[in-house]
C-alpha cells in the first residue's frame, strides 16, 4: 500500500481538527478522506468505508443542482478545481441515498498543488446553508 504524499497527510490532519465538513479527493476523483463533520452530512463513517471511489460515493449520496437535477462529476467544483488549477465554488444540494435527506450547501473546492509542480488532488469544503 503506497503512502499518501505529505501534503495530503497534513491536509487530513488539519481537516480532522476542523468543524467544517471537508472532503480530500485524489487525482482519480476518489474521496480518500472525509472528516467527522462530513460524516454527519454524508451519513457515513470514514473508519467504516475508507476511501470512496466515484461509483461508491454515488451509492451513498447524490450531488444535485438547486433545481434537483444531477450534477455530472466533471461539472462539479471538485473536478473543475482540479482541471483549472484554481478554486471553484457552486451551490449544490447533497442528497443521501439511504433516507433521501437533502441538504443545501455551498461547495468550495481548491486544488492541492504542491512544490515540484505536483498536482495531488482537490480539497472540498462544504458550507451548510441555513
Amino acid at each position: 500500500m503506497g503512502q499518501h504524499d505529505i501534503e495530503v497527510i497534513l491536509m487530513r490532519q488539519l481537516a480532522g481538527h476542523l468543524v467544517v465538513p471537508v472532503l480530500v479527493v485524489n487525482l482519480g476523483m476518489d474521496i480518500v478522506y472525509y472528516n467527522e463533520a462530513a460524516e454527519e452530512i454524508l451519513g457515513l463513517r470514514f473508519a467504516e468505508t475508507g476511501k470512496l471511489s466515484t461509483a461508491e460515493a454515488r451509492e451513498h449520496f447524490l450531488v444535485l443542482d438547486a433545481d434537483g437535477s444531477a450534477i455530472p462529476p466533471k461539472a462539479g467544483p471538485i473536478y473543475s478545481a482540479m482541471r483549472d488549477k484554481h478554486a471553484h465554488t457552486r451551490d449544490i444540494v447533497l442528497q443521501r441515498v439511504s433516507d433521501g435527506r437533502q441538504q443545501a450547501m455551498q461547495a468550495v473546492a481548491f486544488p492541492l498543488l504542491a512544490q515540484g509542480d505536483r498536482e495531488l488532488g482537490t480539497v472540498c469544503m462544504l458550507w451548510v446553508k441555513p
Binding site: 500500500m1 503512502q3 499518501h4 497527510i9 497534513l10 490532519q13 488539519l14 480532522g16 481538527h17
Partner: peptide, 13 residues
Amino acid sequence: GQGRVPDEPEWTS
C-alpha cells in the same frame, strides 16, 4: 496532529 504515530501506513509521513 495526532500526538502519536498513526497506525495506518498510507497515512504516515
